[in-house]
Design a protein around this nucleic acid. Structure first.
Lengths: 137, 137
DNA sequence: ATTCAATTTTAGAATAATTCTAATTTTGTA
DNA sequence: TACAAAATTAGAATTATTCTAAAATTGAAT
């Protein structure tokens, strides 16, 4: 099986009909664990698929989100980033280099009594500051 | 001292020259602990100050942020909300009624070892789901 | 293979939040 | 009262995202 076929099957298993665009987008987000924006995805893939449109990137990401393949994070205020890591985790963004680090800790372990009786569907957390390597410069 | 004079002094103490616009905006965010958007602030105050412009609201909020009077939160993706409560705390937003609840717990108590050697300047967390009163309907 | 409806993709227009710009107004001081 | 600095303003510009309607692709039924 080619790599493309493997990815195609992954998508099928998650209930997504695999078009070329969807496979390439899926491949991109899996290989670039950088929490890309729609723009990052578009600019990278338009070289390979010259007719690709931004609308397709957005459509696909919305579909992936619905199907539980990605989730969105909003650290920078006005630009959505996509994260293929669906385990409960958080982020740290360095103000200097912009890198977004994943943090393993699960927010749900905080056990917040104010939420008793509430139904919690999503939890998000993130820090901002300077990362180690930027401090050491 | 009138209420307006008290607020004016608050601003002075924080290093902000108190104009009418700034005092009214400050008053609004203190009396409406609803994490308002720039638009909420503008729409409410333009009735009182007909010449108010959105630019002034944004300018003022940026200034307040710089001076440590408010901070911004981004729960809804593309609309910044302002929070005058500067103690470390988090939020819960109900998907049905939209209400944003404050949560007292301080994220820093999580003590995340992956951040050893990092400088943490800001920490944010929030949950989404259904609030108690919407569940009981 | 051919037809046809359903699905997907597309280009570009529309929308909405925010920022920018340059002019005007206000403020405080000399 | 004059004047420079600061603040406000209207409206244009920018940017991310969504919408729209047309074109392309797909896949099932014949």
């Amino acid at each position: 099986m080619t790599n493309s076929e493997i990815l195609s099957n992954h998508l099928k298993n998650q209930g997504v009909k695999p078009s070329i665009q969807r496979i390439k987008i899926y491949e991109f987000i899996r290989n670039h664990a950088i929490h890309p924006t729609a723009d990052d995805i578009y600019n990278h893939l338009v070289k390979e698929i010259p007719t690709l449109s931004v609308a397709t990137v957005y459509n696909t990401m919305h579909l992936f989100e619905q199907k539980g393949i990605v989730r969105t994070i909003s650290i920078d205020n006005h630009q959505t980033r996509f994260d293929w890591n669906m385990t409960p985790h958080g982020h740290f963004q360095c103000k200097v280099c912009g890198t977004i680090y994943d943090l393993e800790a699960n927010l749900n372990q905080m056990n917040i009594s104010e939420l008793d009786g509430f139904q919690v569907d999503e939890s998000h957390y993130y820090f901002k500051g300077l990362c180690k390597s930027c401090i050491n410069k």
